[in-house]
């Protein structure tokens, strides 16, 4: 069977290939948007586990600490 540049199967799979491509593009855009939002919000956030970053938290005045 000769190998064709455009096999008939490419036509049959066009819809799902385009759909999957769009889904992947949307996923990339989503992760990018999330990164922007998380970075803007997360001034006091450290690393992957979303824990407050102790080194960045404001020091409490000594009188209030007790």
């Amino acid at each position: 069977m000769p190998i064709q540049t455009e096999h008939e199967i490419h036509g049959r799979r066009r819809s799902r290939n385009i759909g999957l491509g769009l889904v992947l593009l949307c996923f990339v855009a989503l992760v990018f948007g999330l990164t922007v939002v998380k970075v803007r919000q997360g001034g006091l956030i450290e690393g992957y586990d979303h824990q407050p970053r102790v080194s960045l938290t404001p020091l409490e005045p000594e009188g209030e600490a007790e």
């Binding site: 008939e8 199967i9 049959r12 799979r13 819809s15 799902r16 385009i18 759909g19 999957l20």
Partner: peptide, 9 residues
């Protein structure tokens, strides 16, 4: 070639 091809839907 004769299997019904799954579409995105």
């Amino acid at each position: 070639e004769h299997t019904p091809e799954a579409q995105f839907g």
